[in-house]
């Protein structure tokens, strides 16, 4: 089992995950493509069952104002750009580093038979009004569709995962750490 902490959430990846790396913290990223101004990165790069996963985590709890202003309109584009830059970074790093996991990711990116999954793990604030779970699930689908629009050039295996829908990211448990979502540390 490998754990990765992002935005005060601890993600525990089960044994089925053969690669789990925190790409935006990784030296190959920091000293690599990140040197180019404006380059972005997804939070986690993973491999499971021979397929590549690019995972971006957004915790909007405790950021009500930011949520209102940014999330619906800008999130798909922001994640789309992070995915784009991550792919470029992984391919570039695989030519420089000799790091086996990077080479694995680069090989999967170039293998048309392998699937590429893009997962946006989004933690939403609670709503003031009571609402049925099914309504949130509709919004999740709408958000996934918007994200899919931005990633149609790469893959259609794009989804929004959240505590509501754990199935999208199998064999992974997300657990809040003290201070998660703006709660007291």
């Amino acid at each position: 089992m490998k754990t990765v902490d992002v935005e005060r959430i601890r993600f525990s990846f089960g044994e089925s995950w053969t690669v789990v790396e925190k790409w935006d913290d990784c030296r190959l990223y920091r000293e690599g493509i990140h040197e180019l101004d404006g380059t972005k990165a997804v939070d986690i790069v993973g491999v499971r069952d021979g397929d590549l996963y690019l995972i971006e985590v957004k915790d909007f709890r405790g950021h009500a104002i930011e949520t209102k202003r940014r999330q619906p309109s800008e999130l798909p584009l922001a994640i789309g750009c992070k995915v784009r830059d991550t792919i470029a970074g992984l391919i570039g790093a695989s030519r420089q580093s000799g790091e086996p996991w990077v080479e694995t990711c680069a090989r999967l990116l170039l293998d048309g038979k392998r699937r590429i999954y893009v997962i946006a793990w989004i933690e939403d604030p609670a709503l003031r009004a009571a609402e049925p779970i099914s309504k949130r699930q509709v919004w999740q689908k709408v958000r996934a569709d918007q994200l899919r629009q931005r990633l149609a050039w790469l893959t259609n295996r794009v989804t929004v995962a959240s505590p509501l829908d754990g199935a999208a990211l199998a064999d992974v448990i997300g657990k809040n750490l003290p201070g998660a979502g703006g709660s007291p540390a």
């Binding site: 709890r61 405790g62 950021h63 009500a64 104002i65 949520t67 209102k68 999330q71 619906p72 309109s73 939403d124 604030p125 609670a126 709503l127 003031r128 009004a129 919004w139 709408v142 958000r143 569709d145 918007q146 899919r148 629009q149 990633l151 149609a152 259609n156 794009v158 979502g181 703006g182 709660s183």
Partner: peptide
């Protein structure tokens, strides 16, 4: 469908989503 950069149905739902979030999301 995802290849279309203009999807009036999706845009309308997303706009509703955005307005609902603005109206209903609480502060932490």
């Amino acid at each position: 469908l995802a290849e279309l950069s203009n999807n009036a149905i999706l845009d309308a739902l997303a706009s509703l989503h955005a307005r609902e979030q603005e109206a209903l999301f609480t502060t932490d």
